[in-house]
Design a protein around this nucleic acid. Sequence first.
DNA 1: CGAGATTCATGTGAAGTATACCTTTAGGCTTAA
DNA 2: AAGCCTAAAGGTATACTTCACATGAATCTCGTA
Length: 404
Amino acid sequence: MVNNNLTMFFEKFLTKESLFKDKKVLQSTYIPDEINHRDEQINTIAQILAPALRKEKPSNLFIYGKTGTGKTLSIRYTAEQMEQVAKQQEVPLSVFYLNCKLKKIADTEYRLIAELARFFGKAVPPTGLPTDEVYNIFFKALDSEERVVLLILDEIDQLVKKAGDEIIYNLTRINAELKRSHVSIIGISNDLMFANNIDPRVKSSLSEEEIVFPPYNALQIQDILHKRSSQAFKDSIITEGVIAKCAAYAAREHGDARRALELLRVAGELAERKGDTTIMITHIDDAEEKIERDRILDIVKTQPKQFQATLYPILMTHQKKKGLVYTGEIYDVYKDLCEKIGLRPLTQRRISDIVAELDMLGIINAKVISKGRFGRTREIALAIPSQVEPKIRKILEEDLGVAA
DNA sequence: CGAGATTCATGTGAAGTATACCTTTAGGCTTAA
DNA sequence: AAGCCTAAAGGTATACTTCACATGAATCTCGTA
């Protein structure tokens, strides 16, 4: 019977007409044929990078701008165009794009270089080799033939924060050792203050050129949304005011276009799932909520056990106390929890670091404060909307095996 | 009453340890001539 | 004799621990007005 129902469901699903014409247009990895409102920046990038096509080394480039201002898009677009030309003209040009935020891929020097080496076709083990050795492998692979390499490091601030700025210094210097190839580094950062916190030498070598991406204004976002939505959705699916609402949401977040597009996509999916034939403003509201919820749930779900075991006490204590929580209390609860579920408890020192990392992930807000006579601690607050809390709690309890 | 000194609870840095994984090397076994 | 496999040796990165010192404002102390 269940089977029968399912078959019916799938059949109906297939006959039902999709709202989307081409969903991938709204996905964040999509690179449109034409980029609006970024002509100036793209031209500048192109001018800076163009020497690569003459087998000369382009200047290192540093790009600033808040999230969703088109940094990644513009650089990828430009790089793609260059690759095409390079292919036609038979210029040896390699573009390597890496997002440093991806944990476990590029959050230490070793892992970054290993990843680079892999890009050039060398197998590098996840651990065990000396870092120097990995550098060598990378060098050799790089210098095995003449070419120009554009190394795009997205969210480079994350990398530096975790692994120090020496990596970049080393990278900027490898040109000196290469005989046949040239490497240009293109760093992208969301953090406008980033440059102030790094070694001046590193800074000067990295940002031979600098470009700042200003946020989109509301009109530009609307324009972008119009263009993309007309490609993504079938005609007359979107009701009046939806685009404006999306743009408004995005503008509230300093003109984050990526967010606006995601909002539109999720709204479409929600509408489709409900069986509605148009996208209405209410769908946008739902989408807003769903995106935030999914983001947090995803982070929580993918955390290592110990991180979850640290988060759980924070959640519980926070609920019970209705307010700010301090490290000491968390650690006590954490130790009890470990005993209950048979997990080897970590030291307070480590927990302190884990709390700091959870803060970086944005699921909690932790601030170091001094309570005078009563010592010094972190003041921890949850950065989770209260509707989501029960779900998080459930996930944690399941993953940790807490008997409720 | 106010300037220092004190104090607490934990932050934070450095160095050490355990674990997991890598490469190299040496020995033992098999295979082919 | 050459080739191949396995186990041990020697080395590294990473996550974590241990040790020791740093922090910074509420509170205390004590000299002074």
